[in-house]
């Protein structure tokens, strides 16, 4: 009896897992090309799968949106029992243009709690760089995104580096 029960439950579990996994796996990308800074930098080839393997806990990056358990005391106040949300990708909540008139007006809504959501760029960097520092991941700017010539021009680096010897001339000290 007992073994039969176990077998049945195991079978049900297997079925549910096999049924659910392919479905979910299809929505979770293994690689993501992040190109929001393409004006100055080459795309970042983000190895999502590798990060999942290392961290495992989705909530570290995706907050409550995947339905994973949140631990941040602030978030717990509302999202203790939150269900997975429809929007999981960063860009769906973190706006590319956080200081545009539309976004700033949205923030003025008094009924809205999340009026301090960083923009997409800020969210990426705070999240990635913050974790990389803790986990001893790469932290140099160009470790993740190589500069294009336009970027070199912006930073007066590479072939755009200042020619004249440094420290000469007046002004400042």
């Amino acid at each position: 009896m007992r073994t039969a029960c176990t077998w049945i439950m195991l079978a049900i579990a297997t079925v549910t897992i096999t049924l659910s996994l392919p479905q979910k796996a299809a929505a979770i990308p293994d690689k993501i090309d992040i190109g929001s800074l393409e004006a100055l930098y080459k795309k970042v080839n983000f190895d999502h799968a590798a990060h999942i393997k290392t961290i495992y806990d989705c909530a570290v990056c995706h907050h409550h949106t995947t339905g994973a358990l949140v631990t941040d005391p602030n978030c717990v106040r509302c999202h203790k029992t939150s269900n997975p949300t429809k929007d999981v990708a960063c860009r769906n909540c973190h706006r590319k243009d956080p200081f545009s008139a539309d976004v700033m007006n949205e923030k003025l809504n008094p009924n809205r709690y999340h009026n301090d959501i960083p923009g997409l760029k800020g969210a990426y960097h705070q999240s990635c760089l913050g974790c990389h520092k803790k986990m001893n991941g790469p932290t140099g700017c160009q470790d993740c995104h190589k500069r294009k010539p336009e970027g070199d021009a912006m930073f007066n680096a590479g072939e755009f580096a200042p020619k004249k010897p440094a420290g000469k001339g007046h002004g400042g000290h």
């Binding site: 912006m154 930073f155 007066n156």
Partner: peptide, 25 residues
Amino acid sequence: VGCRSCEAACNKEQRLPEPDVPFDD
């Protein structure tokens, strides 16, 4: 994090003179 991107952006926006050293230095 001290990346100095703001310094670089300001330099370009305000058309300031070339810096003594690159902005990633």
